[in-house]
Amino acid sequence: MSLQLDFPAVLERWPSFLAGAVLTLELAAFATVLGALLGTLAAVGRGTHNALIAGACKAYVETIRNTPLLVQIFLVYFGLASLGLKFSAFAVAVAALTINVGAYTAEIMRAGFEAIPRGQIEAAEGLALSRLQIYWHIILLPAVEKVYPALTSQFVLLMLASSVCSQISAEELTAVANYIQSDTYRAFETYIIVAVLYVILSLVMRAGFWGLGLVLFPRRRRLGTPL
């Protein structure tokens, strides 16, 4: 039994791989930005005194965290279709990934909010800042700073998990791989290349988050404290 690998046969399809990788990155970028917003709002919502809002946010978070991503994607995909709404596979994928990562972001941000000492908020209240101003100026950035590693790992995981969007024929990296291997009959080589590409995408995202951290947390940059 000998293993024969023929990479050139697969690598000549590099434009397709590249297009798939770019689309995966785009999916991840949209879902990260939108999911961060949604998750932060849900985390704030869970902390409000309004039982209805807090309950709704909790229900959202728990539902998403206890169902598989693929099922969530199908629900959005077929749900929109049965309402007679037509969206591109890309739009559906972004929506489903946003809803998914939003729930995990909400949990992480909640931990971040809870890590802000009560005294910080009292000091801000004592300076007559409003509730909203306190969230914006006093709580948000230090909370993000406290959970930044967990948060960014979650977004990288999201990028990797986006491979299941191949199931609704969004043309991302895994979907591209699926038809390249059925074209070339070189499945092993194809998925080795795809795996390498995912590693590269992860590194690109981590580098991006590291750079973003420098911008978001100037104090760390000034004092040289690592995240």
Binding site: G119, E122, A124, P142
Partner: peptide, 15 residues
């Protein structure tokens, strides 16, 4: 706005 309060634990905003 009329009252200033200072606490034992300073509570400066660290960021």
């Amino acid at each position: 706005q009329d009252v200033g309060i200072v606490f034992q634990s300073y509570n400066l905003f660290p960021h």
